Computed example of a mutant assay.
Amino acid sequence: MKNPAFLLSLLCCAASFAQDAVNTAAPAVSTEAASAPAAPATSAISRLRLFGQNGATAFLYRDSSCIRGMFSDGVEKASGGMGSAFGSLTGTVSNVSLGMAETETSQNLARKDGFFSKAYFREYEIPADKPSSLRLGFQDVSSFYVANGVRYETVSPSCHGDITFTPRAGEDYEAAFSWEGKRCSISINQVIAREGKTELVPVPVTRAPSC
């Protein structure tokens, strides 16, 4: 009869070999890696360019189809706030760009510079496929805004209004004033860059009520 100690040694070696084979075939999964949450999806956004200087009003209400009070939370004062007014007065205000394509209006801001009133623009991210609203106003806009090479002259000395529109994901927009004859209205143009040229295409807007 074989030595019982020798048989026991063989059984132990076989069990150890089987366990090594299991570990090799199926490596352990990190508990930390398995339970780590997935990264949140990036929200779809659009971009909007607004212009300002002393004598102008440009308030942005993101994700809103109506106009709140100017001192409400969440109102972006691109023009008409104390900081921008002081910067425009002293000539120290600067443009804020998110990389939108230049248009004839943004490239020719100096034409609108006045006495203690430097013109500038600011670009904002806004949620796509949700309404955003604007309160815009300007004095003597005739020499300022140009759309597709057409310059508006001898028009109403002022223009203002409250509008809302719904941007689409990944698109860029620019606020503007447009005219039918001498009647001024607020408009939003999509900024489209093609083959080294920039085109402005009007998009649908509606009047924004008060909240």
Rank of each mutant, 00 (worst) to 15 (best):
M1Y: 13
A5W: 04
A5P: 02
L7H: 03
L8K: 14
F17D: 06
E32W: 13
A36W: 04
P37C: 12
A41P: 11
A41D: 08
A41M: 13
S43Q: 06
I45M: 15
R47V: 07
L48M: 14
L48W: 08
R49W: 09
A56I: 11
F59K: 09
F59E: 00
Y61I: 03
I67K: 07
G69H: 05
D73G: 04
E76M: 07
A78F: 01
S79L: 05
S79P: 02
M82V: 15
G83Y: 02
S84V: 04
S88Y: 14
S94M: 15
N95L: 14
K112G: 15
G114L: 04
G114A: 13
F116P: 03
R122Y: 04
Y124S: 04
E125S: 14
I126T: 11
P131A: 06
S132W: 00
L134H: 02
R135N: 14
L136K: 02
G137I: 07
G137C: 08
F138N: 03
A147L: 11
V150K: 15
E153L: 13
T154N: 09
S156V: 09
S156R: 12
S158L: 09
H160F: 14
H160T: 05
H160V: 05
T164L: 08
P167W: 07
R168E: 14
A169V: 11
K182R: 08
R194N: 07
K197E: 02
P204H: 12
A208H: 01
S210Q: 08
